[in-house]
Structures are given as C-alpha cells and as structure tokens.
C-alpha cells in the first residue's frame, strides 16, 4: 500500500470529485426549472440505475469479448428476488442474499 500521505491525497481528491457531482446540480437547479422531457427522463433513473448495478454484478468483464457469467451472484439473485417479492422488506432481502451467497460458497464452492 502507498504512503499515508499519498492515500490521503487520493482521499481528498476523490472527496472533491464526488462532492461536486452531488452538490452542483442542487446549486444550478435552484435557479432554473427543468423541462418536462427531462423530468420524464429522470422518472426512469431509479429503476435503470438499480437494475444496471445489479446486472453488472452478474458478469465478469473481459473487454473485447462477451462477458463471463458470475455464477455465484447469478444463483444468489434468485432467492434474493423471491425474498424481495415475499417479504417486501429490504432487511430480509439483504440477509437472504448474503446467506444465499455464503451457502453457495461454503457448500458448493461457487463464488
């Protein structure tokens, strides 16, 4: 691991980058109204971001070739979806998800 000084430079630089992307839209949009088309676009942001972060985790990237399936995450997603539908609870869904992958790892050697 690099020196304490370098790690802290990285921490501060990344903090500035993420802070700006969180705060600048709030400052700019206080003065302006968003057009309707953009509002319609923003309606889709939650489901699109959530599903893309999930789907990305189901594969292992090999740039230039079709991605490999991440079998552990793929299989663990099935009981996790069932838990979400049955319980409608985030906590139960996360616990079942973690438990599913742990069982796949420990008993079947899949990860």
């Amino acid at each position: 691991m690099p020196s304490l000084r370098y790690v802290f430079t990285v921490i501060l630089g990344c903090a500035l980058a993420t802070w700006l992307s969180r705060v600048v839209p709030f400052i700019i949009l206080k003065k302006f109204r968003l057009p309707n088309l953009l509002l319609e676009f923003l309606n889709f942001v939650p489901i699109v971001i959530m599903s893309s972060l999930w789907f990305e985790s189901l594969f292992t990237q090999r740039q230039g070739q079709l991605p490999l399936i991440n079998l552990g995450n793929f299989l663990a997603s099935i009981p996790t979806i069932a838990a979400a539908i049955i319980s409608k609870s985030l906590l139960v869904t996360v616990l079942i998800g973690v438990l599913s992958l742990a069982i796949l790892n420990i008993f079947f050697g899949i990860n």
Binding site: M50, A76, T80, L90, G97, V98, L101
Partner: peptide, 23 residues
C-alpha cells in the same frame, strides 16, 4: 466466503423491486 460482498447487490435488488411496485 461469508457472502458479505453480495450485500450491496441484494440491496439493489430489494430497492429495485420496492421502486417498481410503488412507482
């Protein structure tokens, strides 16, 4: 091995489902 890495993914699945049924 303890499945902790999947916590983030499971949370996205749960949030996605809740968003779908409530939107």
């Amino acid at each position: 091995k303890l499945g902790l890495g999947f916590a983030l993914v499971a949370m996205f699945i749960g949030l996605l489902y809740l968003q779908m049924i409530n939107d």
